[in-house]
Nucleic acid binder design. Sequence first.
DNA 1: GTCTATACAAAGATAGAC
DNA 2: GTCTATCTTTGTATAGAC
Lengths: 187, 187
Amino acid sequence: MHTYEQILETAYMLFARNGYEKTSLSMIAKEVGISKPAIYYHFPSKEALFTALLDAVCEEIRFEKYFNPAEFTADNFTEKLISCGLKMIQDQRENTEYSLLMKEFMIQSTRDHQILITVQGVIESYLKGFENLLRYGVSLGVLSEEGIRTKAEMLTLAIDQMDNYMTLGIQLDYEGLWRHLVSQINR
Amino acid sequence: MHTYEQILETAYMLFARNGYEKTSLSMIAKEVGISKPAIYYHFPSKEALFTALLDAVCEEIRFEKYFNPAEFTADNFTEKLISCGLKMIQDQRENTEYSLLMKEFMIQSTRDHQILITVQGVIESYLKGFENLLRYGVSLGVLSEEGIRTKAEMLTLAIDQMDNYMTLGIQLDYEGLWRHLVSQINR
DNA sequence: GTCTATACAAAGATAGAC
DNA sequence: GTCTATCTTTGTATAGAC
């Protein structure tokens, strides 16, 4: 593996565990096994390293990676919506570092406009993604046309906050919550 | 106003705007109009100042401040639940600094165990608060007994995440979402 | 392409004067 | 109760050698 990728992966881990501010370039360099100034050969600044990481993560969690419309049919619609959500919840539970890093991006977005735009984009893509998926469900005849947008907002809101709560160590019946939520969509 | 309170209020503002790490004691001292070491007379450390702030904020946002069970009757139950939630959403929209500071606590909670316990406590109190309130609704005969806990989890999740999204500048029909959610509770 | 040496700024904190 | 002076550490970043 090249140094560039090693830096990215190490930064991913350390930013997630310690946060952006509390992770220094020295720490990253030490972990990778290079000198601190060597990082500046690959990235112009700490901030640039951080945003490079943001872009990589955003690519990882695109809506279609979890909810692929092609897999949804009239017969399996509700069950598919439930199982895809459960898969996502499961992934988030196992991959704590991703969740922590995403939180870090959220925090930094209140101070950095470029990061804000990117983070907003991720959420908007989920809102649009759910909305399109539900409309597809309507066209399949398995959902009523009423309040599609509201339902999409609800699903986005919920799956996002469940991740936050899991990271915080709040013990909830997340699977049950998601099941309940989806079943309310198409009553 | 005493210096102690002035430090707290200034720290409140600066921690909210710049975040914990990016707010230095020098900045706080300058804003208050005292010297940096003078802060150490009132607070043993930066961290202690931060947790003192956390305790103050937690007191501010207790569940009962927004959802006072004494105000709920059989006649007004659903409407009261909606209006109390709307009031809370409105407060959060107007008081951005509180929301930002709360986010800061969330982030720090992943690194500081004492903060984690406190933050978890706030969320647990909302979970318990909604649960008790809904059970009260059952005893009044306006709600069915089914899935009370799940419904309480849903309300907590939603009102919390709506705050996050508002801070992020995501444009949603928050009032409509809350109305929809509450109306689904007691069908 | 990567490292050594170093610059420069700023942080949190302490001792002791007033 | 507040300040001056200072310590110690650590951060990001640059210049230039190899």
